[in-house]
Design a protein around this nucleic acid. Sequence first.
DNA 1: ACAAAAGTGTTGATAATACACCCATGT
DNA 2: ACATGGGTGTATTATCAACACTTTTGT
Lengths: 241, 241
Amino acid sequence: MKKSIGVNKRDNVKEFEQADSTTVSVDCVVFGYDGYGLKVLIMDCTMPHFKGYDSLIGELVLKSETLDEAAKRILQYWTGLDNLYLEQVKAFSDPGRHPLGRVISVAYYSLVQIDNYKIDPQLKDRLRWADVNELGQMAFDHYDILHSCLSTLQKKIREKPLGFSLLPKKFTLIQLQNLYESILSIELDKRNFRRKLTNLGLLIDLDELQQSVNHRPAKLYSFDFEKYRKKKSKGNLQFEI
Amino acid sequence: MKKSIGVNKRDNVKEFEQADSTTVSVDCVVFGYDGYGLKVLIMDCTMPHFKGYDSLIGELVLKSETLDEAAKRILQYWTGLDNLYLEQVKAFSDPGRHPLGRVISVAYYSLVQIDNYKIDPQLKDRLRWADVNELGQMAFDHYDILHSCLSTLQKKIREKPLGFSLLPKKFTLIQLQNLYESILSIELDKRNFRRKLTNLGLLIDLDELQQSVNHRPAKLYSFDFEKYRKKKSKGNLQFEI
DNA sequence: ACAAAAGTGTTGATAATACACCCATGT
DNA sequence: ACATGGGTGTATTATCAACACTTTTGT
């Protein structure tokens, strides 16, 4: 049913004063990579309608903050982490998506170096890393949100050096290749992959080797974010995997 | 200053009941192409704070509709058109972006065949096609929204056959090339462009010629959207310009 | 010495680029 | 016949894809 007030009145002031108001939330898909597969930070939903369901981390947005600020606050609160890679994906707005009323949710995804982070012990009965593929039904429309963010990640990781935000600062080329293979669900040729990456000129050879592996240790590299920014701003760069 | 209610309470129900509420709007960047340059449908802002400024077309979102539905309603209302290409881009949420209070706006862009459409005479003192590059200061943060949508269009038009939604159903290859050149602000090689497009196998040669031009008439083509959908769903397609 | 994973070059196919002249129509 | 923009092919270069063996370490 349509309301007569606030709809296409062609007069912003009256429209505003009589407007429907809405609750807005941010939901964050926190991705991590543990060397075997892509993981998502999942919490146990406590809301009666979805008790026990898996949900994303999310909160309502304050009037005084931007959506980006809300996402940062939420991430900081639940993970204790700051300065994470963070990207807005899409707003989800089905009127029936939230059982308590109209809530529009803006989805973000974020990338965490999983090995550098321990879940707050106080939260460890509510938070866990779940494999992306293991998740089925979730609270609200969080399954859709998750998969929408996953598609965006799969697309963006080929155009921007996002993979390095999922790996430790020092990584091997094989770890990097495994990461791309598992996120993109494809197989890559080892030699071609290494050639492409080294030709970018953005990897720093640390002249260090992996420790305590029971096979030939691999060389460690790090990614030169500074050089990447410079090249990008000069425009002579197309990162593409 | 932070509120103590509704912030990271780890209890969704209480949080919801006491939540800040917000007004949500949709702003649409309606793109058109007139054979010379990329145009945007602009209206004269009537709100006192921005009287006379250029603004995008936008309205508040109803509680009973999705954002996509709101965008469709707004487009239908202001242009009379239906079934336009429509894509959500980003939510804009600076707390100070709207002078009357907190309004989060979700930006969409939309593509119109400009020659097939006449502005409603009743609205023609408020609506006009403006060249993208001619627009400077605009109402609200509409300049940012416009340029954000423009960047998205520039990116997406290389990956998806969006150009055909901006041209008449029957078009010449030169019109198509001009469109790409003016949207992307680059020059393309005529022969290479034509080869790439014809090799896609998605153009229908109509065996018709342009009428009443005072030079050699060009052949007319149309785009085979049906075949595109089929190829895409089978996965054997990469549209790339 | 054996297991396990790291590392390394070449070749052929495909796609991208650069480039200049003739053609059809209206005036 | 001339002005205007439409239409066409080839040669070169760069990029991508396929492929198998040797090396280093721990046990």
